[in-house]
Design a protein around this nucleic acid. Sequence first.
DNA 1: GCGACAG
DNA 2: ATCTTGTCGC
Length: 234
Amino acid sequence: MTYATTETPGGPPPGWPTTEAAATAVQDELRGRVVLDEPGPVPGEPLTVVGVDVAYDDERDVVAAAAVALDAETLDVVAEATAVGRVAFPYVPGLLAFREIPTVIAALDRLPVRPGLVVCDGYGLAHPRRFGLASHLGVLTGLPTMGVAKNPFTFRHEPPGPRRGDASPLLDGEEEVGRALRTREGVKPVYVSVGHRVSLDHACGFTLRLAREFRLPETTRAADALCRAALREA
DNA sequence: GCGACAG
DNA sequence: ATCTTGTCGC
């Protein structure tokens, strides 16, 4: 599988933004390509779900990404891939995608299966300019994507009910940009938002199916473990 | 102007 | 994200 960004062994692709102003301009331009009106893959039907995550060593200017493909029904790992690169952008809230995406796409390129859905660490639509990491990855790859974040960003929400599956809207004014979703009783919720070509209801359904035993989806847990291991060996 | 702020 | 010991609990 080869996706949008060009090949550049270690570093960011040619033309990758280097300033915050250039990066926000890219977001404003690509935002219009996000597809929000497809229900997308259906929770409970056969699917290959891919988790992606990244680990950093800013000292050495090294970033390692992992893509782990799971059978959505059994949660068995069916394929995995990693990639190592140079840090492409500093961490700036709202511009996370510019830091993670080049290496994530390199890892996806090496994955020998076609993802039916990609689950990202972080947000998609729930973003100041409605174009978070998951949205950006979706537009560049064309794949259905969604985001599951561990912390609330800048959106307000009521605490969801206490039971697994309880949810409350993440609100930007009156607009529901995502959902705080309880995956485990007595444990703080995760924050779900759509990326590309998947509905919020389905994204929440997948999150619950992927996170039965732990707070976070197995896709995220598997990708996190793998990218950390890849960073050590880099 | 001053905080807050996904990873 | 990352720096980090022990500790409580299944």
